[in-house]
């Protein structure tokens, strides 16, 4: 990787060498996450071998898919030093719009109209967010906070307290069974991950995003267009949110106005746990994806170790503790490098 990811460690005395080495290994967040995922699977697998079965993991991956798709976009947003906390509400709005258009009980339009329209709407809202952030100079957390509230209200208003069901048979079939036995959401997720990876590693655009995130000033001096880059990342996130909606929502029995609530928090959490610096300029896709798997795993794992009715209610607490643990461990191990790190977090 061309980014200066390798840490330079000042200490060289024998006493600290071992721990530094360990720290360096753990510092690759991916290693830690992978260890955690493997360890959990093995432990749960020993208790109940069914956990390691194909069906269970297929189910986990299906649950991962929408989060992974959207996380690809939000990760790029965070890399440029901005944040997007509106994806959950956007998903709900898009689901409502899509449902209204293609449900057999509603407008009953063809999927060939409904799906592209949903994609366009998602991208459009993303671009609007981006232009407010870049042209209007409104901090992204404010814009997306406002949208989080406003879009959710708009969705509830649109649904009018009723649920939308009876999506076209073809779409639900595709979502449930998929192509050649692979659920469509997983296929889409793989496609999006590939696309994002190419974008980051093989196209100048990706490098520019990192440049913008590490120092907006230098990026500007190097002649990069901040406006264009930000329009792109937000537009991309909007597009991916629409995509995630299209492949995931038909899986559900009906569309409710509560769809995607707290989804934004899950996505941001995955991005952060995956090692993307919240101040921008740093982070790898693979870390984010592992974090998505880890966070999604928690619920199935809890079902498998059978914590009972009372334990069920503790799921969120355990999830929260997990995030806290991930963040704290990371800071603990990366503290040694803090000295050399830039401290001018914008």
């Amino acid at each position: 990787m061309s980014r200066s990811q390798t840490p330079t460690i000042g200490h060289d005395s024998n006493t600290v060498r071992l721990s530094v080495r360990f720290a360096r290994l753990i510092r690759h967040r991916e290693v830690g996450l992978l260890l955690l995922i493997t360890l959990t699977s093995v432990v749960v697998g020993i208790k109940d071998i069914h956990f390691l079965s194909f069906e269970v993991w297929r189910d986990i991956l299906v649950r991962c898919a929408p989060t992974a798709i959207v996380a690809c976009g939000v990760m790029l947003v965070v890399v440029t030093g901005e944040i997007d906390i509106s994806v959950g509400s956007l998903m709900a709005l898009l689901a409502a719009v899509m449902g209204r258009m293609i449900s057999e009980n509603e407008l009953d339009l063809s999927c060939w109209i409904g799906i592209p329209a949903t994609l366009c709407l998602g991208t459009l809202i993303g671009v609007c967010t981006g232009s407010l952030v870049s042209l209007g100079r409104v901090p992204s957390i404010i814009v997306t906070l406002g949208l989080l509230t406003a879009l959710r209200g708009l969705t509830t208003l649109m649904m009018g307290g009723e649920n939308i069901d009876r999506l076209p048979e073809g779409l639900t079939q595709l979502a449930k069974q998929g192509l050649f036995g692979v659920p469509i959401s997983i296929l889409t997720a793989v496609g999006v991950i590939g696309l994002t990876s190419v974008l980051i590693h093989h196209i100048p655009l990706g490098r520019r995003l990192y440049a913008l995130g590490s120092s907006a000033e230098s990026a500007r001096m190097a002649g990069l267009s901040e406006v264009r880059l930000k329009l792109f990342v937000f537009g991309y996130t909007g597009f991916l949110t629409a995509l995630a909606t299209i492949v995931d929502v038909p899986r559900l029995p009906k569309i409710e106005s509560g769809i995607g609530s707290e989804f934004e928090l899950l996505v941001v959490t995955c991005v952060v746990v995956g090692g993307v610096a919240i101040s921008g300029g740093q982070g790898r896709l693979i870390g984010v994806l592992l974090a998505v798997v880890l966070m999604t795993m928690i619920r199935p794992v809890l079902t498998f170790i059978d914590i009972g009715e009372a334990g069920e209610k503790w799921t969120r607490a355990i999830q929260g503790m997990f995030i806290l643990l991930a963040v704290v461990t990371d800071s603990f191990f990366s503290r040694r490098q803090r000295g050399s790190e830039k401290e001018h977090a914008a």
Binding site: V268, V272, R316, A317, I318, G320, L324, S331
Partner: peptide, 18 residues
């Protein structure tokens, strides 16, 4: 721990409610 407040409180947001 010098963690970013957004991250810390995002984590405790989930943890406390849980």
């Amino acid at each position: 721990l010098r963690l970013h407040p957004l991250i810390v409180t995002l984590a405790t947001f989930a943890a406390y409610r849980g």
